[in-house]
Design a protein around this nucleic acid. Structure first.
Lengths: 206, 206, 206, 206
DNA sequence: AATGAATGAGAATTCATTCAT
DNA sequence: AATGAATGAATTCTCATTCAT
């Protein structure tokens, strides 16, 4: 194992601790995650969390914010990419949803761990509510543009967005619960299958 | 409120405690649920959990099993109801998924609380895996029969089952996360919308 | 050692813990007093403080209140005793100030431990301010009555009260700091010596 | 505020830290005084205490010694001042006891903070015992000289010294506990009032 | 069957001290 | 001489479990 330098920029340390926290939550659950576990996994001392995050709760919040930002930023890059057509953007969105970085079982476990506590923790809820809204607006807009571009009469962009979002959440759950029999590619196939029912002239090949 | 008798059949006490546990998990999250909270909410003494469930862990497992059984039994009643047509069975399935009893926010919070810990707790996982499989088989069969009855050529019953299941899981999450703007009826509409894309000649009216 | 019963009335347990706390503060200082020390000295388990006092801070406050109440109640019994003359009441007051129960080195250490933190802890301050005022009023009244009864022209009862109070506080400090060379009886002699200067016709014999 | 030079004579740094310690103890109590607080208040780095005092304990001891020396040196200057008469020396002593420099609430808080820990800390005790003795000897001698000079028959110089010392300690406590209603001038008045009872021909005017 | 005071292992947090820069 | 990130022992607090009544 390579020696970590004794002193590092605060940002690096925070990221190091957040990554260890993700692994820990995936391994032990939110309730089973102790500061001792996290710091040991990070190869650091017990007191360091307090130094960089003050409390365990704040570390958890920052961890949720980290995966939230990662997801949002990834989607924003697609949404604001001027080189992609609308269809390509939607395809890229789906591909991103079930990519290595996002549909990673550790991160999925973290998502669901926080969602499971959302009702009782206003802070978790507000962090989630925040990004859900923004992404839904962008995706609805994409469906709306595609509808107009390609003259799909009966499509309801908002409904399709809600349906697609729920579907991808449910597919993530399936990836988390039945990792043996259900893979990211299966999930992507199903997501595309739904989009094809709405936009039959698009989304035809893989 | 009427006085609880000091001595009651064990089964009644167990149900009483499980119901208190559901409320507690919804209110405080899985990690924030203590035996003191549960027993106080049930109006019983601290020691009673040990008497009826031995450990907290076993109470939690029984709680998960309780909502799991409730869901499975409800669906079984529909599936084995000889008075219903296949379409009616599927309609009833959807109606049940978003009924008062099932799409109750307390129970949804419990589902997601356990799912969030699933990766780290083999027991929770095996309880979930168990019922998921059985229900998927039944639902796939219904789609398969409908396909043959009504001559839907291109429908893949297994894929539709997986897609519907993921969709309803995702809709439950939406009900949990955004209860203000998204109601059970909205969820049901979206679920039916998906089924209509697969079986356009069925599921036409509300 | 006699076995303590496993379960006791809450009041008894609280007193038991407060007494152990007094000993601990005297032995280790306020900052050196740990819950582990207190509970070990009381022959009880670590968790019991939380059960009866919630936090360490509350145990400390109750401890201060305990010695405060003991002092105030003792003086009240003297002040409201109808069988004593005014001079007898003042004599009893002095005797009480330097009695076994009050001029006990453990308790003195506790008094000064709290006084030393008074400036930084509003709660400690308010508990002290409370009783100081009440006692000063009563003592001033005694001096006032004695002045009138015995026709002492130049005595200022309020000033004598403040002076006596400061003197007895200082004598307590001497008892705490130089226990070898300075005893309760010496302190009492000095206190009486001061009173004799103000009321030469009273307070003549021991 | 002017920049502190990065490198300064050790003595200056030590005094700087001791002054910050006094403020900190007054503000947060002895138990609430951390190295982080002290060094921040001094505008210096956390590691500097170790450099100049080795341990926190040694810094505290030096702080106690600092206020102790300040008090003792002030009194020595009076005692060995050949230009003052005995009465003037005693008057100066009282004036010093309740001067700005000594009856400062920060320093009083420090005195009582240490006295509160004296019973459990032999080091603190020996520092205190040391100066108490020396001052008592000097003051007794002054009273003794005054007695002989002015022919006070019944005065017991040692008793008067003990009484005055206790009184001034108690007055300091009053200044600490009830700063609003009790000021240094009030304390001085009471101290002089006591001395007048012993030496009625002296100490007549302010 | 039921109670709830007591227990004590386990977890978060604090903070004096260290040490590479 | 000075810095401040990092350490980890010590302490408080939590809470599932026990057990005498």
């Amino acid at each position: 194992m390579s020696e970590t330098p004794r002193s590092l920029p605060a940002k690096t340390r925070r990221k190091q601790l957040i990554k260890a926290t993700i692994k820990c939550i995936a391994k032990n659950g939110l309730s089973g995650t102790t500061m001792a576990d996290v710091t040991k996994l990070a190869g650091l001392s017990l007191g360091i969390v307090n130094l960089h995050f003050e409390t365990k709760e704040k570390l958890l919040v920052e961890t949720l914010r980290f995966i939230t930002d990662e997801y949002r930023n990834g989607l924003d890059k697609i949404f604001f990419n001027e080189n992609l057509s609308t269809e390509e953007k939607i395809r890229a969105h789906v591909a991103f949803d079930f990519s290595r970085a996002i549909a990673d079982r550790n991160k999925l476990a973290v998502w669901f761990a926080f969602w499971g506590e959302t009702k009782s923790r206003p802070t978790y809820h507000s962090i989630c509510a925040d990004y859900i809204d923004e992404i839904a607006q962008n995706l609805t807009q994409l469906f709306s543009i595609l509808k107009n571009e390609q003259n799909y009469q009966s499509v309801d962009p908002e409904l399709v967005c809600t349906c697609y979002t729920a579907l991808s959440d449910g597919l993530w759950l399936a990836l988390l619960l039945t990792p043996k029999s259900f893979k990211a590619d299966d999930a992507k196939t199903i997501a595309m299958h739904y989009l094809k029912t709405q936009f039959p002239n698009n989304f035809t090949m893989t």
